[in-house]
């Protein structure tokens, strides 16, 4: 897989307004010999001080046989634990931390992940990491494509005014990146459904490129840096200037 030539900015903003981040998810996939039936209990023992009881997600109602026979379900969570600012989702081979409501900022997410890594270590079920991923989903009202430095072309002319959904998979140093751009989505924002565009970027590492308990947090840091460089690098400078960028 090739890398994508993304313009480098001399300075990357630390904040833009309004904050377009709809959801931030830090995820690790793993293998374990521990049966699924006891995983939620093992984790809950460790996180109950900050998170509520496990809540079943709808997929849990499917039989284990069906879940296991369908590859699409392999990495989906089956229960969630809700806290005041974050959700933890757990499945037989995945655990993720995601922001709830307004984006709390990277330092808050990093601190929570740091806490969670220790709780996962103490729970003792984590066998071997398979994939470490970070996904940021940004939402913008209207059509985002004219504001991007990447756009579809038809017979040498830019495609405009049509619904576009585009997925790019590329390498970024050690990371695999998957960028989804779509100019016709409906998103639930503060209880209201709004139409617009999403910039959905997922950065991940394979099993040989991280050790969750050793350098997992550092790898999330790197993913966050790449995420910002890709996101801001692909915005048209004129558009970025309308978002009141703040720099350190």
């Amino acid at each position: 897989m090739a890398s994508l030539c993304i313009p480098e900015l001399s300075e990357v903003p630390t904040r833009i307004t309004p904050c377009p981040i709809l959801e931030a998810i830090l995820e690790v996939r793993f293998v374990t010999s521990t049966p699924w039936s006891v995983l939620p209990g093992l984790l809950f023992q460790q996180i109950r001080r900050k998170y509520g009881d496990p809540k079943d997600l709808p997929l849990v109602s499917l039989s284990e046989e069906i879940r296991r026979s369908e590859p699409h379900f392999t990495y989906l969570p089956l229960v969630s634990f809700e806290g005041p600012h974050f959700s933890i989702r757990l499945g037989p081979r995945v655990i993720s931390l995601s922001s709830r409501g307004a984006y709390p900022g990277w330092s808050a997410i990093h601190a929570e992940m740091s806490w969670l890594v220790e709780r996962i270590r103490n729970a003792g079920f984590f066998g071997e990491g398979e994939r470490l991923g970070m996904r940021y989903i940004d939402f913008f009202e209207g059509d985002l494509f004219p504001s991007l430095r990447i756009r579809p072309v038809c017979a040498d002319d830019g495609v405009e005014g049509v619904e576009i959904s585009m997925t790019l998979a590329f390498e970024r140093e050690d990371f695999q990146a998957r960028l989804i751009l779509n100019n016709s989505v409906a998103a639930d924002i503060g209880g209201q459904v709004r139409n617009g565009s999403i910039f959905d970027l997922d950065l991940s590492l394979g099993a040989g490129q991280f050790d969750f308990f050793d350098n997992g947090l550092g790898r999330f840091e790197s993913a966050h840096r790449h995420n910002k460089e890709i996101f801001f690098g692909l915005l048209q400078p004129e558009f970025l200037s309308t978002l009141s960028p703040e720099y350190d």
Binding site: M1, H72, P77, E163, Q176, V185, D188
Partner: peptide
């Protein structure tokens, strides 16, 4: 509960293929 947005075509927002069958989509790599 795991799909933070829906597209106009109601495709899922996950990485997987929305209609399993003869064509398979892959994770990057």
């Amino acid at each position: 509960p795991t799909a933070p947005y829906t597209t106009s075509s109601h495709f899922l927002s996950g990485t997987g293929d929305s209609s399993p069958g003869r064509v398979r989509c892959f994770e990057p790599g």
